[in-house]
Design a protein around this nucleic acid. Sequence first.
DNA 1: AGGTCCCCTATTCTCGATGATCGATGATAC
DNA 2: GTATCATCGATCATCGAGAATAGGGGACCT
Lengths: 223, 223
Amino acid sequence: MTDEATITRNVLADQVHDYLLQGIFSGRFPPDSRIVETRVARELGTSQAPVREALRALEVLGVVDIEPFKGARVRSPSSTELIEAYAVRTALESLGARLGVPRMTDADLVEITELHDALQAAVATGDRHMLAERDAEFHARILAMSGNAMLARVWRSLEPVSRTYLTLLAPNADPTWTAGLHPPIVRALQARDATAVQVALARHFEDASRQLLSALRNLGAKD
Amino acid sequence: MTDEATITRNVLADQVHDYLLQGIFSGRFPPDSRIVETRVARELGTSQAPVREALRALEVLGVVDIEPFKGARVRSPSSTELIEAYAVRTALESLGARLGVPRMTDADLVEITELHDALQAAVATGDRHMLAERDAEFHARILAMSGNAMLARVWRSLEPVSRTYLTLLAPNADPTWTAGLHPPIVRALQARDATAVQVALARHFEDASRQLLSALRNLGAKD
DNA sequence: AGGTCCCCTATTCTCGATGATCGATGATAC
DNA sequence: GTATCATCGATCATCGAGAATAGGGGACCT
C-alpha cells in the first residue's frame, strides 16, 4: 500500500495531485477559492495537462468542484454535508469494528494505543492541523484491522470532507473536547468487545455532530 | 444531480468518461483488458488529453487501474474484493434504511414498488445487463430516501464494482435467485419497519455472498 | 547452450500553442 | 438614468508533436 505510493511518484499528475491536496488541507487553498490551472502550472514548472488531470481526480474525490469553462474551486462542504459525512463515517467504522475486533492482534492493540497517545499529545499542543492528521490516523488504523480493503478505500474517500471541518471550522471551537471522545473507544478495544466499540463510536459520532452544529451556529449558519 | 450531468456534457473528457464506462459495463472492454489512450482517441476522433483525463477519473472511481508508463487496464475485482464491497454496500444501505424509513412518503413507497416490479420483470427476461441496471436502480432509490446525499455518493462510488459482478460472473450462475432476495425488503418497507428492513438487507447480503462464493468456486477460483 | 546486453517498437507522458468560452467593462440607444 | 449590446482580458479546453519509458527480440559473449 505504502510502497506502491512511493513507486508511483514518477508521474507529474500524481505529484500535482498530492501538492494540491496538501495545499487544501494546509489552508493554502481555502474553501471556495479558485484553483487556476495556468497559475499552478507556472508555480510548479509544468504544463497545464498534469494539473488538469490532477484536478479531475480531485473532483471525483469530492475535494474540488469543476465547472466547464469556469474552472475549479475548492469545495466548501455545507454543514448538512459535514454531518451526513459523519454519519456515513460512523456506519463504516462500526462495520470496521465488527469485522476487525475478532481479528485484532496484540500488536494491533499496541499500535492503536500509541496512535491514541499521539492524538492526545496533539490535543495538548492545540495544533489543529496535526490534530486532524492524528485523528485520521487513529481512525484509519481501526479501519485497517477489518481486513476489508474496500472498506478502507471508501472511508478514505470520505475523509477529506471530515478533515476540512476539523481544520477550518474548528478554529471557532475548543479542540480539547475531542480528547474525551476517544478513550472509551480504546478501552472497548482493549476489552476486545466489538459491541462496546460500536457503542463508543456511536457516542463519538453523536458528540461530534452536536459540537459541529453548535460551532456552526456560533459561526452564523450560511447553509 | 441529473441536470448537472446534462449541463456538464460540453466537455470532451466527460463524454469520453461515459463512453468508457458504458463500454466497460457492456463488456466492450472486458476485465483485465488494456485501454490504449491513442486507440480510444482515434476511435472517438479526439486527442489523447481528454482520454487521459477520463481515465484518471475512472481510476479514482476504482474502475480501471493505471500503472505509470504502462497504461490503463480494466480492473477485474477479485472475489474477496467483491465480497468486501458487498459488505460495505450492506452497511451503507442499512444506514440508509434507518434514516430513510421514518421519512418515507407514500409516493416513495409506490415508486419503490414499481422499481421492484421492473426488477422482477428483468429477472423474468433473463437479460443480465438490464437486471444489473434494475437492481442498481432499486437499491439506489432506497438510498435516496435517506436524504443523505453523501451516503448516496459513497454508495454510488461502490456500485461499479458490484455491477461488474452481476454482468460478468453471473453468466455462470442462475440469475433467478436474485428474485427471492428483494420481496422481503419491499414488505418490510411497506410495513414501515426500519429494523425489519435492516434485517432483510442483511439476509440479502448473506445470500448474495453465498451465491457469489459458489459461483466463483464453480468458475475455478483464481483469487 | 545459457545468459547478458543492446536496440527497436509501441505507448505513455509532457509540453507549448491555438481555439473556445466566460464575466466584466464600457459604449450606445432610448 | 437605465437597459441592452459589443468588446476585451482572463482562463479553460483541445490539439499535435516530441521526449521518456517499458517490454520484447536478436546479437554477442562465455
